[in-house]
Design a protein around this nucleic acid. Structure first.
Lengths: 120, 120
DNA sequence: GCACTGACTTGCATTTCACAACCAATGGGT
DNA sequence: ACCCATTGGTTGTGAAATGCAAGTCAGTGC
């Protein structure tokens, strides 16, 4: 599976830039965060997260993350209903990323957001 | 300096979500990447990076990252001209984030982007 | 069979982004 | 002193992404 088959455009060959082409928006890493916390999440589960993602954005992100091999259906053969998502090996490998972001924000964003707490 | 003074809206109290409110776009972490690599960068320097950021987006991001205490002018008292940007302590603390993103993309995005290399 | 739920799609208004053009202030060459 | 290229932006306009509400549609549950 290559870039053109997913309709992906890459701004440069820099890995950081490529990562931002895939994950560089307000929602993708929150989807990853949820899956790191709960292992599996249904479409409805994602909607219940406290940031209130809208349905069209959620559907589009799940498609893109699936196309990029970061997440997958629990049962790839079955229909969408009651067929939650989970991280692939690639998605699991994002744990250090999300954790380092958590650590940074927890210690450097407190002054800006009085509500920032250890809570999710 | 608090959130309302910067006009910042937070979707939730989760640190990861707050971090995405600040850095969750295609460009911010590339600006950080450049500053991690070169220590100081002028406005023109940022424009020379291979992803070709447009001027209005660059100006807006530099403002936001400055407002959030991630970057600063080398000489805060002087005018903008010949007054490059550098990372604050908060910005320096993003090094583990950018490095873990680099490591992830380098090993998990290769199959999708044939051009992904160790080059910046 | 029929309502209900889960997983989306569609339509539309708003916001953000990209691209190009423009502008003001500095500074170097002569 | 004068020209003029460079730096660090701002402004305008069209395209794209986003947010919100409503609608669709295929399974269950009873």
């Amino acid at each position: 599976m290559h870039s053109k088959q997913v309709g992906m455009e890459w701004r440069s060959a820099c890995p950081v830039s490529c990562a931002m082409d895939v994950l560089g928006d307000k929602w993708s890493l929150l989807i990853i965060r949820d899956l790191l916390m709960f292992d599996t999440r249904t479409y409805s589960n994602f909607r219940e997260s406290s940031e209130h993602i809208s349905t069209n954005i959620l559907a589009e992100r799940l498609k893109r993350l699936t196309a990029m091999g970061v997440i997958e259906r629990i049962n790839p053969e079955a229909t969408a209903r009651n067929n939650a998502f989970q991280l692939t090996e690639s998605g699991q490998a994002l744990r250090p990323v999300v954790e380092s972001i958590y650590v940074w924000a927890d210690s450097h964003l407190r002054d800006f957001n009085p509500d920032t707490a250890a809570a999710i």
